[in-house]
Amino acid sequence: MTGLQIAFLALSAVMLFAAWKVVTSDIIVHAALWMVLSFVAVAGIFLTLHAEFLFAVQLLVYAGAITALVIFAIMLSDIRELRGEGEPAGAGLGRRVRRLVSRRLGLAPAAVAVGFAAVMYSVYRATPWPGLPPGDPAPSTLAIGRELFGTYVVPFELASIVLLVAMVGAIVLTLREGGREKEEKRP
């Protein structure tokens, strides 16, 4: 077992444990913080796979930007997780299904999630995978830059438009009534 393998396994374990805590912790702020740890671990795994650029992007975007967004949303909306909140809405068969889902460690979601992971595992087992190509790869940042601004320049531009639209959309959605009034008063 090489050092790289040990590193991978350790990161993987941290990532999965953090994800487990994200899903199960009772307090939403804790979940958000565990999420950061999980993202950082994923970034580390990227590094073991020689994806240096993605490592940086993962840290910046996920561990930085998205985390900030989530925490802001939690603070702004004053969201508290309420536990054991009575019977779920709905009636009849649907209510029964609903109950299966909404119990805190609901059986049906767990079954589906485990089933999915198991199916994927069996698929991976059955497929012959090629070994690692020999030699260390060249640093990938340059190659990514080439691809992004060459082959994928149009999707790249489109992605920037998607981001812009998302930004505008988020602003419009959360615009308070007061702000709008102020704008109307301007000539």
């Binding site: 889902v101 049906a108 979601p109 589906v112």
Partner: peptide
């Protein structure tokens, strides 16, 4: 029609359950 709860989670659950069963 009672299955049509309006809860997106239920739909996703059904969707993934069907996916797992289908793959198996």
């Amino acid at each position: 029609r009672t299955i049509q709860t309006g809860f997106v989670q239920t739909y996703i659950l059904t969707f993934f359950a069907a996916l797992v069963v289908g793959l198996v």
